[in-house]
Write a protein that binds this DNA or RNA. Structure first.
Length: 579
DNA sequence: AACAGTACTTAGCAGGCGCTGC
DNA sequence: GCAGCGCCTGCTAAGTACTGTT
């Protein structure tokens, strides 16, 4: 989708300032590119290749049937991949072990069938593991990393030096899928220059492959944004080297995404009316589309593309929901027409929710489930493609995922409006911000595992609060005492003392309030991940405007990386920005 | 219409770094 | 100066969406 023509020149419409943010003038004054063209100039060094495997010292051994065994270099390398993961739950899973042994046997010199029978845990001596866990000297490592970053971490795009996101090829290792992945434990091959396609501009300095090697291909395609790509061997899919989110290219795309979501705001009422009408359609297909869209809109479900069976973990989104993933309750907990959702979504994160839906939705669901097996598709006539075609027809650029962006951002804006108290302290306002952010994270089902140290650190915080309470009480006593003394003596010195004690009390009370806020925030946040919504769903201009309106420093909301990513929004949004 | 292929965004986790409190 | 812990960053898997081919 080309950027809508209504877009003002980034970062600020008609500001009269020819110096954009970062003080670069020309960056914002480039002529428009043709449709689909992403750049005119692209120059870079190609990917950084992870160094080759270094064999283990002689005294570190691998044991087979109780006896130390010398492995070939390739075999040994793969053994270290496994050894590094011994502490992880992965290695106890049968699928992981089977996949690993299957791939390892292919390079193994022994070729004995008994390999399959050994418990892999027994194969690695303590000395071996100890060596694996050892760390190399740090200062030197860091220096080296900086050098590599300088050399490979940037490219020139249309005359500007831009940071690259991932400029290193992925190192070889054992594939770690999420959830019950059928391919977990398979060997991820080392990427060689011969696997890599380079993309750059024809007239640029074309990157040199490492000595003695060749690129798979060098191409000059300015309709795509990637600098290099290769095909990984586990799922046979492409991997790319692309720009960092701080780059102009990515920033503009991000901005555009939120502009599409803002346009949805204008037509969403019409769309909602339409899908309600479609619940009564004669066509089952249309009804299914309308019910699915209702879920996507109301519950912020993902679209749910079809997946190849057996190739990935069994997860679903809206269009791929199966009968077994929902339960219907005519009545539940005093609510009518309740749908109980229970399924694994992206990254095998569980979605569990009980929702009271409108009656026609409930009736339609009953109809869709009639005479079906639990493993049958709920929306058997529906594909994401069909749904998106319909959405495109309703609004230019509209797809299923836009609803997530729209609902997330509008929720943040509404929650901020509802929760922020101008009288609050900065800490209090930040709690409100986090709560608004949290409402979105809950809507989008962004979960995290409870941190291992959560209970302990919570206890520590509680103890701090108790201690502070005591201090406050003592300070109150002190104030009282001082006041009495002043009443008796009328001594100006005693008056000064009263003021001093009052100030101390005030300070302590503020500290206590801050601690209480902290504890509340922590507790409410233990299983919710705020980062994903902040980074991908919330129009940053809403947050920037909020900060400006309430005098909150932007650093309290966005860390350095985030400020770089959202530089466009920080430069652009005033306090009166409305999503 | 099904399907494979491609390009891009979105996602949680691990490990390291730097800050805080002693 | 040091330990513990929380935040940040890098990593890469896993989605969405669209295109071209049959």
């Amino acid at each position: 989708v080309p950027a809508p023509s209504v877009f003002p020149a980034w970062p600020r419409p008609g500001s009269g300032c020819s110096r954009g943010f970062l003080g670069v003038c020309s960056r914002w004054e480039e002529e428009k590119k043709e449709d689909g063209v992403k750049w005119m100039q692209l120059e870079h060094r190609g990917p950084y290749f992870v160094p080759p495997y270094e064999p283990l010292p002689e005294d570190v051994r691998f044991y087979y049937e109780g006896k130390p065994l010398k492995l070939s270099l390739a075999t040994e390398e793969i053994a270290t991949f496994y050894a590094k993961m011994l502490d992880h739950e992965y290695t106890s899973k049968e699928i992981f072990q089977n996949n690993f042994f299957h791939d390892w046997r292919k390079v193994l010199s022994l070729g004995k069938s008994s390999w399959m029978l050994i418990s892999p845990r027994l194969c690695f001596s303590d000395g071996y593991r100890w060596w694996i866990l050892q760390t190399a000297p740090k200062s030197k490592l860091k220096e080296e990393a900086n050098k590599i970053q300088e050399e490979y971490g940037y490219c020139i795009l249309d005359g500007h030096r831009e940071k690259i996101g991932n400029f290193k090829t992925e190192p070889p290792g054992l594939f770690r899928g999420r959830g019950e992945h059928p391919k977990m434990g398979m060997l991820k091959k080392r990427i060689m220059p011969e696997d890599v396609i380079i993309n750059c501009s024809r007239d640029s300095k074309i990157p040199e492959p490492p000595e003695g090697h060749k690129w798979k291909e060098v191409r000059f395609d300015n309709t795509v944004t990637w600098l290099a790509s290769w095909t990984e061997n586990i799922q046979n899919t492409l991997k790319y080297i692309m720009l960092n989110p701080s780059s102009k290219l990515k920033g503009e795309k991000d901005w555009q995404k939120y502009e599409v979501a803002r346009r949805l705001k204008g037509v969403v009422h019409k769309i909602r009316a339409q899908y309600r009408k479609d619940w009564k359609s004669k066509e089952i297909k249309t009804r299914q589309r309308a019910v699915a869209l209702y879920f996507i809109d109301k519950l912020a479900l993902r679209a749910g593309n079809e997946k190849e069976e057996g190739e990935t973990a069994d997860t679903v989104g809206c269009c791929s929901l199966r009968v077994e993933h929902i339960q219907l309750h005519a009545q539940l907990d005093g609510q009518e027409h309740v749908v109980e959702f229970d399924f694994l979504g992206k990254d095998s994160i569980r979605y569990y929710n009980k929702v009271s839906v409108e009656k026609p939705v409930f009736q339609n669901l009953k109809l869709f489930m009639k005479n079906k097996d639990p493993t049958d598709d709920l929306f058997d006539q529906l594909t994401t493609n069909f749904l998106n075609k319909h959405l495109q027809h309703l609004m230019d650029g509209l797809t299923a995922k836009v609803f997530r962006t729209y609902n997330a951002s509008i929720t943040l804006q509404e929650q901020l409006k509802a929760l922020t108290n101008p009288e609050d302290s900065v800490a209090g306002k930040l709690l409100s911000y986090n709560r608004a952010n949290r409402a979105v994270a809950i809507l989008c089902n962004h979960q995290r595992s409870i941190p291992k140290t959560f209970a302990r650190s919570m206890q520590v915080l509680q103890e701090k609060i108790e201690a502070k309470k005591k201090q406050v009480e003592e300070a109150q006593e002190e104030v009282k005492k001082a006041e009495e003394e002043f009443k008796d003596t009328k001594d100006p010195k005693a008056k000064a003392n009263v003021e001093k004690k009052q100030q101390l009390l005030k300070r302590l009370e503020e500290q206590l309030a801050k601690l209480n806020v902290q504890a509340t925030d922590k507790e409410e946040n233990k299983q919710i991940a705020l980062g994903t919504s902040k980074l991908n769903y919330l129009d940053p201009r809403i947050s920037v405007a909020w900060c400006k309106k309430f005098g909150i420093p932007i650093e309290k909301i966005y860390n350095k990386t985030q400020r770089e990513k959202f530089a466009w929004a920080i430069a652009m949004a005033g306090e009166d920005f409305e999503f």
